[in-house]
Simulated assay, not measured.
Amino acid sequence: MNAADVLRTERRRAVRHRRTRRVLVLLSRIGLVGLLILAWDAASGTLVRPFFVSTPEAVGRQLALWLGSSDFWFHAHFTLTSAALGFVAGAVVAIALAWPLALHRAAYRIIEPYFLMAYSVPAVALGPVFILWFGIGLLPKILLAAYFVFFVVFINAAEGIRQVPRGLLEVSKVMGASNWQLLRLIMLPSALPYILAALRVTLPAAMIGAVVGEFIASNRGIGYLTRAAAGRYQTAGVIAGTIVLAAIVLLLSVALRPLSRALRWQPDVKLRGGAAT
């Protein structure tokens, strides 16, 4: 057996090992969920009153009722729309502001304390203000989702752009590079790992922002359904709404796996900030 055959054999073995490990991890996760459901079912009615934790059967019936109802999908569409629009708006505005401010470092130092002050305000506290200003429709939910996204993307995009050596920018200008070329060929590639890492973190945060707005005041959305169930003391509906929201965030995390793979070739970056709460 020559070296090429040995290499192919080792590659196949490595692929089989990775697949086996993934299957084991998946089965372990499913088994853990099964154990939690069994423990929940055993505790309900014995250790804890069903009024407080409901039962897996009741929650399952509520989920089946919702998933088979067009009304539920209308509410889910409202939540996903506000989260998606808020995510895009927050990210675009953050990147658009980060570029000029990061280039003019004196201006950035002047503006930075005010951004930090605004970022320190809990997004939940702004919810009633947005509701008061813009009503209970789609707009305040979009703004809350954008707020959750904006600061993390802005801080990290500005940090990535500021990592570009000033000498490199000056030499490029002397050689005739335009501002657009500087942005496209030098600054954006430098900031890309920071921006991608921030987007990966803030996509689920945009969902949180939209749901927070629905919890505060809304007549549509999954958050509204959950709050309405709580108002009627329907524990199964509250838990079912929580499970639906957790499942959506999980699906978003799975959808971000290609973005995580895209980051593998990038140098490690230290993400600044976190989701506003």
Rank of each mutant, 00 (worst) to 15 (best):
T242G: 14
I239W: 04
I239R: 07
V244S: 03
T242P: 01
L252W: 11
S253W: 10
G231Q: 15
T235S: 02
V254M: 11
Q234R: 15
A246N: 01
Y233K: 06
T235L: 01
T235E: 00
R232K: 15
V244H: 06
V238A: 00
V238F: 00
L250T: 11
Q234D: 11
Q234V: 10
S253N: 15
A230G: 09
G241C: 07
A229Y: 13
V249A: 06
V244D: 03
V244R: 08
I239V: 11
G237R: 09
V238H: 09
V254S: 12
A228D: 14
L252I: 07
G241H: 05
G223P: 03
Q234H: 14
T226F: 01
G237C: 01
L225M: 11
T226Y: 09
G241Y: 06
A230Y: 06
I248F: 01
A230M: 11
A229H: 06
A236H: 09
S253K: 14
R227K: 15
G231R: 11
I243F: 05
I222A: 03
V249F: 05
V238T: 02
I243A: 08
V238L: 03
G223F: 07
L225S: 08
A228L: 11
G223A: 06
A247P: 09
G237F: 12
A240N: 01
V254R: 09
R232N: 13
T226P: 00
T235K: 02
V238M: 04
R232M: 13
R232H: 13
L225R: 01
G223S: 06
S253G: 14
V254Y: 12
A240D: 04
T235G: 00
V249I: 05
I239H: 11
V249M: 06
A246H: 04
I222G: 04
